[in-house]
């Protein structure tokens, strides 16, 4: 059996909004192993984003344990959490979250700047990753000069730039058309086949079809966890090439 990269035991998350308390996650137990390609599904408000934020070390559980590899995340201070986010995790958002007024290349370089990597190496790596996502010629473009699909690909390049062990994507295709969505999923599949653990939140079955495992949530509870045979990229219909 392969190594666990994520281990959640009895994790709950309660949002305290003063008047009412929302229990977004209820006693969740989940283990994700190295090299897995997991889809998280569930209806709106079922706690998917809450889970992803905890996995991405952006938020902390109210109770329960979260181990990232061997490390107990609950005892980490803000500095250590920043280092984990920088080195071990690549996070892709539904709303892209590129830094405005900053070129695509610079956006991709940013995690490496925070990792204190030398400039020439940064430039080389950023260009390589932009090429990898098919945007070699868009490095000088500002975010508002890119299409949604292109923005998301820049964001993916940025998430990958420090060679993280895992890629977390919260509805990465939520704002994209089908063509772009499938391209993104092909990219994820390729990354996964190189050994990167990928966790994707999605509402769409054809997106989840790319994954080897589907975890479903309802009202903050994990209700099903199934392995499946993933769709291979070659079998998927290829979207329009917009390069």
């Amino acid at each position: 059996m392969s190594k666990a990269v994520i281990r959640l035991t009895d994790v709950s998350k309660t949002y305290d909004t003063g008047a009412i308390q929302v229990q977004a996650l209820k006693h969740v137990d989940l283990v994700i192993n190295e090299g897995e390609f997991v889809a998280i599904m569930g209806q709106s408000g079922s706690g998917k984003s809450t889970l992803m934020n905890i996995l991405g070390c952006l938020d902390r559980p109210t109770s329960g344990k979260f181990y990232l590899g061997e490390d107990d995340v609950s005892v980490m201070d803000p500095k250590e959490l920043a280092t984990v986010r920088n080195k071990k995790i690549g996070f892709v958002f539904q709303s892209f979250n590129l830094i405005p007024r900053t070129t695509a290349l610079k956006n991709v370089e940013l995690p490496m700047i925070y990792a204190r990597r030398p400039k020439t190496e940064r430039r080389r790596q950023a260009e390589a990753l932009l090429a990898r996502v098919g945007l070699a010629d868009r490095g000088d473009h500002l975010p508002n000069e890119l299409s949604g699909g292109q923005k998301q690909r820049v964001a993916i390049a940025r998430a990958l730039v420090n060679q993280p062990q895992m890629l977390l994507a919260d509805e990465p295709t939520g704002n994209l058309d089908t063509g772009s969505s499938l391209e993104i999923m092909e990219l994820f599949t390729a990354l996964n086949s190189e050994g990167v653990t990928v966790v994707v939140v999605t509402h769409e079955e054809e997106i989840a079809a790319y994954c080897g495992r589907v975890v479903r949530f309802k009202d903050g509870q994990l209700i099903s966890d199934l392995l499946q045979e993933p769709v291979r990229p070659a079998a998927a219909a290829k979207g329009g090439d917009d390069r």
Partner: peptide, 16 residues
Amino acid sequence: TREIGIRKALGAQPWD
């Protein structure tokens, strides 16, 4: 604020 959030998500230290 949002930009700060993005930077933090990408691993910026508080000091950065």
